[in-house]
Computed example of a mutant assay.
Amino acid sequence: MITKTKAIFLDMDGTILNHQNKVSTYTKEIIDEVRKRGIKVFIATGRAYEEIEELTPPGFQVDGVVASNGMVGYVGSDVIFKHSLSRELVETVIKMARENQVYYELFPYGSPRITLKQDQSYAEDEIRDPKPESVGINEWDSRKESIAQKISWADEVVGDEFSKFYFFARTKEQINRWKEELDQLKKEIDFTTSISTEHNVELMVANVNKATGIQQMLKHFGLTESETMAIGDSDNDLPMFRLVNYAVAMKNAPDSIKEVADDVTDFTCDEDGVYSYLKTKFIG
């Protein structure tokens, strides 16, 4: 039951983030209020940890962050757990992405995301205007920002710790073909994939997802799944929905997500749905 809740895990995109990729001050304030009442509040996101600060209001605080779909966990600036893609997998996937002309961003820990210079021209072409109708404005704006400011166009991949790959295609047909290519590669190298929209797919270490990250975070705080709630809106939230005691889907979530949830918010992410839900259930 919801009354047993001692920990809440919140997705970002489509949940606490609106379609302008911002967390409202109302959401910050309700998180503060819930935490004052002794309930731990966490972020569980597909985004890299380094992205969060710029998307949230000044003074935004949570008890911990599960980032990159369960690849890394932070409490404050301390790393609680971390997984890394192998260099062999990274090099293999980049070569395949180039052969298939698939837009990719590789996320090293602690440094800007990477796309190789030799892949820049087709990557930029994927983000050409006009925006495809089926691509969400928040994802499109994020890709535009990545191309203009976020990506480090590198001559070669350096380092040996990487949190994830993000792949995007302007057509569903192309991204679905790429998913099939990745499924074939899984027969040779084990890894996990996750999707949050019909135009993307992300790649992580095998058997890692939001649920595994949440389990590690709960263990750190001495909490259990039976005391935990999660709020989300997309396919990459399903593992955590299956794990927690009480799963809440956003009003803007697809029906397939709402069907597996225990409850649905009355308002969308653009209407401060998480603020209203937490206020009603925990503050009154």
Rank of each mutant, 00 (worst) to 15 (best):
E105P: 03
K186V: 09
W140M: 07
M250S: 08
D125F: 12
I137M: 13
M12C: 07
R242N: 14
V158Q: 11
A67D: 02
Y49V: 05
Q61I: 09
G73T: 03
R98L: 05
M204W: 03
D119Y: 03
T212W: 04
V248Y: 00
K258Y: 04
L218C: 06
I39N: 01
I31A: 02
T268I: 12
T45G: 07
S68M: 10
V34F: 05
T5S: 03
E29A: 07
V135F: 01
V23F: 02
Q61G: 05
M96F: 07
G70Q: 01
K172E: 15
G73M: 03
N207E: 15
K40F: 09
M71W: 08
V264L: 05
G213T: 06
K95Y: 13
Q184F: 09
V205Y: 06
A261E: 00
D262A: 10
E54M: 11
I195K: 11
G232E: 04
N209P: 05
I31V: 15
G70I: 06
L55I: 10
V135W: 01
K179L: 10
F107K: 07
V23T: 02
T5H: 01
Q149G: 14
Y246F: 14
D255M: 12
R143S: 10
G59P: 07
I94A: 01
A123C: 10
L218F: 06
V158P: 02
P132E: 09
A123G: 06
S196K: 07
L223I: 10
V90D: 00
V79D: 14
R170Q: 15
N176P: 07
L185V: 12
H199E: 12
A148R: 15
G273L: 03
E227Y: 06
D272L: 00
N252G: 11
T192V: 09
T280D: 15
E181F: 09
K28Q: 12
E181T: 15
F191T: 01
E133L: 14
E181G: 10
F162C: 01
N138I: 09
A154M: 09
T25K: 08
E180R: 11
G38K: 06
V157L: 02
K28N: 04
T56E: 02
P57E: 04
K281W: 00
